[in-house]
């Protein structure tokens, strides 16, 4: 069975989680799927800016606080896509007050928040016919990120070549993901050597030996993405770009359950 809820996570910040989340979600939507992406980075919300959503009335915070139904927080972005797919977003509230509020939640609240995330499988996937839910998380071992990982069927872990990121990611995979027995795929992101994509099989073996998880994809560092400064849904706006092809390959692997 293919994974329906996908969390995108990393040990360190700046690994490209949000860019991967948005573009994986958009790739699925381009394939005709009904997709929702959720911003679970409550400490530094960014999807509202990247996706330029200015009309959000309710936030994911409200859903987790059990004050609104999930349908109230979803903003339909499908008109921005070509094809028959549907793309929705559930945003984190970027106000300072909301960020402060989310940082001071207790364990009981976090337990209930986990229950609310788990219930999305019924409310959105079973009842509303969504094909995929994508959770964009905050880096490291935050409560909200671990909740997202527990609720997910599959976790995409983004990592770079940075030494501290490699060590931290290794530790996180061993001490967190293994304990929850999560199906995981690793993305080597922002790789400086462009020739690495040609050595994918060889690197896949190295990744498995180093991290004990399969390689989902290798993304070279594209100047075009940096230049766009988060202003593009890349796979939508640049359909012939190598990044778009790499993301399509990742989506295909996830959909066909080929990450092993």
């Amino acid at each position: 069975m293919s994974s329906k809820i996908i969390a995108v996570h990393s040990y360190k910040g700046g690994t490209g989680k949000t860019s991967l989340s948005v573009n994986i979600a958009s790739t699925f939507a381009k394939l005709g799927k009904k997709v929702a992406i959720f911003d679970l980075d409550f400490r530094a919300p960014s999807l509202f800016a990247i996706l330029k959503v200015e009309n959000a009335e309710f936030w994911l915070n409200d859903y987790l606080n059990n004050t609104v139904d999930v349908n109230k927080i979803l903003v339909d972005l499908s008109s921005r896509l070509t094809g028959n797919g549907k793309l929705y977003v559930g945003l984190a509230n970027p106000s300072t007050e909301a960020i402060r509020d989310m940082s001071s939640k207790d364990r009981k609240w976090e337990m209930r928040a986990l229950g609310r995330l788990l219930s999305l499988k019924e409310s959105l996937i079973r009842d509303e016919g969504f094909d995929y839910l994508i959770f964009d998380t905050s880096p490291g071992l935050q409560y909200s990120s671990i909740n997202a990982i527990v609720a997910a069927d599959f976790v995409v872990v983004a990592t770079t070549g940075d030494r501290s990121d490699v060590d931290g990611t290794k530790r996180m995979l061993k001490e967190l993901y293994n304990l929850f027995e999560k199906k995981t795929g690793l993305v080597l992101n922002k790789v400086l050597d462009p020739s690495v994509t040609a050595k994918k099989a060889e690197i896949g073996v190295k990744v498995k030996a180093t991290y004990q998880v399969p390689l989902l994809g290798i993304v070279p560092c594209f100047c075009d993405i940096l230049r766009a400064e988060g202003n593009l849904i890349f796979v939508q706006d640049k359909p012939d770009h190598p990044f778009t092809r790499i993301l399509s390959e990742m989506a295909r692997k996830i959909e066909n359950d080929e990450v092993n």
């Binding site: 364990r107 976090e110 337990m111 671990i146 909740n147 527990v150 967190l176």
Partner: peptide, 22 residues
């Protein structure tokens, strides 16, 4: 509270059961 930190601190055999009931 059966929150994620509690789940992490549980012995493996109980965590598996607790995760399933979660």
């Amino acid at each position: 509270s059966l929150d994620v930190m509690t789940l992490l601190s549980m012995p493996d055999h109980l965590r598996k059961t607790a995760m399933t009931i979660c």
